[in-house]
Amino acid sequence: MNGIMNDMKKDSTTVFGFWVYLMTDFVLFASLFAVYAVLHANTFGGVGGKDIFNAPFVLIETIILLTSSFTTGLALLAAKAGKKWWVLILLLATAALGAAFVSLEFSEFSTLVLEGHRWTQSGFLSAYFTLVGTHGLHVLIGLLWMVALMIAIIRHGLTQPNMRKLLLFSLFWHFLDIIWIFIFTLVYLFGLL
């Protein structure tokens, strides 16, 4: 019993440590937001936000990411109820939505580059690609994490280490959702004004 209590204490410390990591990531994104805020008007005679942002496209991306955040929450509820296969199904749904998000973002980026609007073009495009790309990279890492997590759950079930990993992953994924809300508002909607 004492051993179990110690394990719980260790896990709650891990959760707090992960939270501290998320806060440092928050500061990283804030720096990129500050760079974007400073450089967004420096288009060097090239395209600005109004010319390249597609409102319905970004709305779909936002709904996809919001829904994936919701399915992560449901996966945690399934884990709480001890339903291993529901956890896997919901994680698979989250991964599918995350993959859809990343591929939409990739198609957006590749269209821009193919049209000649590269990140070397202007301060605006450099800041835009860096901010949105860093978020996309985080989502991609989250996808890899999800694959590893699903394999671990299939092999060992809802053990304590897997419950901990699932909880940390959910925090990471909700965090990316929050960052995206600010990208949606401050980059895309402000750019379309």
Binding site: I4, M8, D11, S12, T14, A79, G82, R164, L167, L171
Partner: peptide, 13 residues
Amino acid sequence: MNTRTYFEDVGAW
């Protein structure tokens, strides 16, 4: 470890 109370036990919920 009890999955029913795990998230509460580690203080996440």
